[in-house]
Design a protein around this nucleic acid. Structure first.
Lengths: 207, 207
DNA sequence: TAATATTTGTGAAAGATTGCACAAAGTCTG
DNA sequence: CAGACTTTGTGCAATCTTTCACAAATATTA
């Protein structure tokens, strides 16, 4: 298969979200132009993105919303579920566990770990916090495939290494550091401070 | 000035973070190669990024950490402070307000608004939650320049419009929708579900 | 069914970003 | 202080991404 740009994957989720909404509203077909308008993307972009994965459209008519929805769900792995562990149960970690936005997406938060012994045994939502020492056991018993790193910067690399040693190959990193990982491991960085700071750059350099 | 790539700005914050750490450790100079190694970026990338803003290095020696730190702080608007309002005080909104990661960055969270009248009057950290009806007043009284949208997808566009009508030109949007904004307004989207889902794509398509 | 109108899928062009490679500038050593 | 070494800054090349533009396919209309 031809190499698919990073951004394409990300946009497929946007299309899927929109298409799902359209299907729910009983709209049967949509053109790339309309879909683009709804997502603030160009029609060409929509077509090219979809084009990486097959021929889903019909000339003169557009895309069937139900078909495209199913196709995208398949492509994006929505037909499967993945088990997620959150490491670091501070403000952010707790919020992520409780954040309802994740619930519906085939991602199951089933473990929470923290180094603070005072937190161990307490509950966040329905999950009982476990000691970080238990990490290898938790990962294998609960078949964790995605690890969320929500610890302070200083501890992030160490946590990443523990997760990887336990076999986790996908990390979502909220700590503001560049993690060092081998190339078989996929890391997504979400740096909230940096996002905000970027706005302050914009403000400082406006006009 | 030549057009500066999006990514460059983002990386400047990474350099600044690293440089600040180095300066704190009394390391006086650093080469682009070393800085690149510490941030998992190439030496050429480091030099090119800095090159957009001036000549900060010395051939044969590298960059003076203190000088570079100051220069970056200036470029990135760290010498100023900006007032931030959070709209939507749910799990995520509360976590953002309390998240200590922001405190040190010249970004002051000084207002929180919510549509839920039951929340109005309550406190999150040191901030008292105000009604969303008060938004125009709050923005102008408190000189808000950055708005954080942490409401459900359905309400996001409306909140964005209220903020913009009140004069806010920088938005950090956590709602999973594409906001429609005029081009003088800068929006940064942080879509946590999408980040996680991207990992599930990776898992589904591994090997 | 024929003529017109839509809309896709995709090469090729344009644009943006990153990496290469090296002259020029400065440092360091003996 | 001369020669060896290091490191920057930057054109140029390579790569990656987006946009353009149009033939081909299908729909719609009369």
């Amino acid at each position: 298969m031809k190499k698919v740009p990073e951004g394409t994957i990300s946009r497929l989720f946007i299309y899927l979200r929109e298409i799902t909404e359209l299907a729910r509203m009983n709209i049967r077909t949509i053109s790339s132009a309309e879909l683009g308008e709804r997502t603030n993307l160009s029609d060409a972009q929509v077509r090219k993105d979809l084009g990486y994965f097959g021929h889903f459209g019909v000339s003169g008519a557009g895309y069937d919303t139900n078909e495209l929805k199913q196709a995208l769900e398949k492509i994006l792995g929505k037909d499967k579920t993945w088990n997620v562990a959150v490491v670091g149960v501070g403000q952010l970690g707790s919020a992520l566990i409780s954040y309802s936005g994740f619930k519906k997406h085939g991602l199951q938060f089933i473990a929470a770990l923290d180094a603070d012994t005072k937190k161990v045994g307490k509950k966040v939502g329905e999950i009982t916090i476990e000691s970080i020492g238990e990490l290898p056991k938790v990962v294998s018993n609960k078949k964790i495939t995605i690890g969320i790193i929500a610890v302070p910067a200083e501890g992030a690399q160490e946590v990443a290494e523990k997760l990887m040693a336990a076999g986790v190959e996908c990390l979502l990193n909220f700590a503001p550091v560049s993690l060092n990982v081998p190339e078989n491991v996929k890391v997504k960085d979400v740096d909230l401070s940096r996002e905000l700071e970027t706005l302050s750059y914009f403000l400082a350099n406006k006009k």
